[in-house]
Simulated assay, not measured.
Amino acid sequence: METHAILAEKSVSISALRNNPAQYFGDQPIAVLSHNKPAGYVIGAELFEEMMRLIGDREEARAFRGRFRPSGAELAEYCKSSAAALKDAKPENLEEFTKW
């Protein structure tokens, strides 16, 4: 016997969904079952928009990390300029320095 994960607290059969689909669009996902197996999920517009925003934010972060690929020479230059900036810094400038 094969088991299938249902990633929602509520479920509905495809035939029940066909009768009145609008009642199932809400703020929680609802599993749509076909022959007692998950065939898909129904979600409301607000939840879908939030999911798309989260996916977009994640993709933007991934794209940014992917673009920042300095070479060894560039990293050495960043280190050298940072060391020089620290060496030339005045004590009052260093008071603003905080660790992450």
Rank of each mutant, 00 (worst) to 15 (best):
L86D: 06
E46S: 15
I30H: 02
A5F: 00
D57N: 10
L33D: 08
E49H: 03
F68W: 00
A45R: 06
E2Q: 08
H4R: 00
E46N: 09
R69N: 08
N36P: 02
V12L: 04
T3N: 13
E59G: 06
A63D: 01
E60C: 13
E96L: 07
I55N: 10
E92H: 01
N36S: 09
S11R: 12
A45G: 02
M51W: 06
W100K: 05
P70L: 06
Y41T: 03
E60R: 15
R69D: 14
M52P: 09
K10P: 13
A89Y: 02
S82N: 10
G44A: 01
K90F: 06
E96M: 14
P38E: 05
L33P: 12
R69P: 11
E74W: 04
K99F: 13
L33K: 13
L33Q: 12
L94N: 08
E77D: 05
V32C: 02
E92I: 00
S13L: 07
E74Q: 12
D57I: 07
D57V: 02
V42H: 00
A31R: 00
W100S: 04
D27A: 11
L94H: 03
L54E: 07
P70A: 09
P70T: 11
G44D: 00
D27R: 01
R53Y: 11
R53N: 14
S34Y: 04
T98E: 04
W100N: 09
M1N: 08
R65G: 15
Q28A: 13
G72W: 12
F68T: 03
